[in-house]
Simulated assay, not measured.
Amino acid sequence: MSLGGQLTGWGAAVCLSLTLFIAGCSGSKSPDYGTFSGSVYTVKRGDTLYRISRMTNTSVATLARMNGISAPYTLQVGQKVRVKGSGSAKSTAMARATPAKSRASSAVAKSAAPPVGQRCWRWPASGKVIMPFSDADGGNKGIDIAGQRGQAIYAAGAGRVVYVGNQLRGYGNLIMIKHGEDYITAYAHNDTTQVNNGQQVKAGQKIATMGNTGADSVRLHFQIRYRATAIDPQRYLPPPGRSPSC
């Protein structure tokens, strides 16, 4: 079934937001990596083509074309994937965001981002941020917050639920909330969801419980998107453990 067919009745804007969300990040990367031999990467359990693309700074389309892999890009443990370059996956991932490139991409992103304080946000869950936001190519387009299974997840702001489902590979149980015309927040890897499509929610309302659907550890992957572009949530959230002052 096509993505449009899955979301009949929710309109092209929601479909576009979901498409951009897929391209942005999965937030399910773990500290363990497969192995390289020259320019060949050996797939380990839990790897996806999206994850390998982030680690090797190679687009999904390029990897798919080089290896003759068609959508939905299913991989097998032990499979050999040709990549550009060589070396360990960890060192490649660390070298991906060079200082010059990071400064350039950050400047572009911040210039297009809304001013801090334009909208009042609150933390969707308590816990340590284990993966920060990155605007590098293939970087994490949100933040990942570690926690306990069953821990409450709250709406970061008032709005209308525009997606509840698990059809998007790599995100598990996912909720998306639209806030006015410019903003959408996303909450991935939930254990249970407690809202429905079309439902109006209040800021701080419980919408889900934390889990690891689509991830290799219990966490919340949280995004704020401004006019479909991912922005760094930690620039707009209050200090950890505090309520918003607005």
Rank of each mutant, 00 (worst) to 15 (best):
A208C: 09
M1G: 11
G211K: 15
T229S: 13
L168P: 13
A12E: 11
R51H: 08
T42F: 13
Q151G: 14
K141H: 10
H189M: 01
Q6H: 11
F222K: 03
S217R: 07
G38T: 10
K90S: 14
G172I: 09
T229G: 02
G24P: 00
G157V: 03
K44M: 15
G127K: 11
P72V: 02
D232Y: 03
R225H: 04
A71L: 03
F36C: 09
D216Y: 07
C15I: 12
A64R: 08
G172E: 07
T62P: 01
M55W: 09
S70N: 03
T213V: 02
T58V: 13
L75V: 05
S106N: 10
N173G: 02
T62D: 09
V83A: 04
G127Y: 10
Y33D: 14
T185N: 00
T8L: 15
G27Y: 05
Q6S: 08
V195W: 11
P238F: 02
G85P: 07
L75H: 11
G241D: 10
G165R: 00
L63C: 00
P239L: 03
D135L: 01
Q194C: 03
Q200Y: 04
W10C: 04
T193S: 15
S111E: 09
S30T: 14
D182E: 15
G165P: 04
T209L: 12
A100M: 12
S86C: 06
T193E: 14
L168H: 11
F133M: 06
Y50A: 12
N196E: 15
Y183T: 06
D144A: 11
Q79C: 02
T185S: 15
A71R: 09
G138V: 00
W10T: 15
Q6M: 11
P31A: 14
G38R: 14
G147L: 06
A71V: 05
A100P: 02
R51L: 12
F36I: 05
E181C: 04
D32K: 08
F133A: 09
S217Q: 09
R122N: 07
I52K: 05
R82C: 03
R160I: 12
S28T: 13
R96L: 14
V201K: 13
G11H: 04
G172Q: 09
I153E: 05
I52E: 06
D32H: 12
V83F: 03
V195H: 04
Q223W: 02
A208N: 13
I231R: 02
I145F: 05
S245D: 10
Q6R: 13
L63P: 04
S91I: 02
A152I: 10
Y183N: 01
G165E: 05
P115C: 06
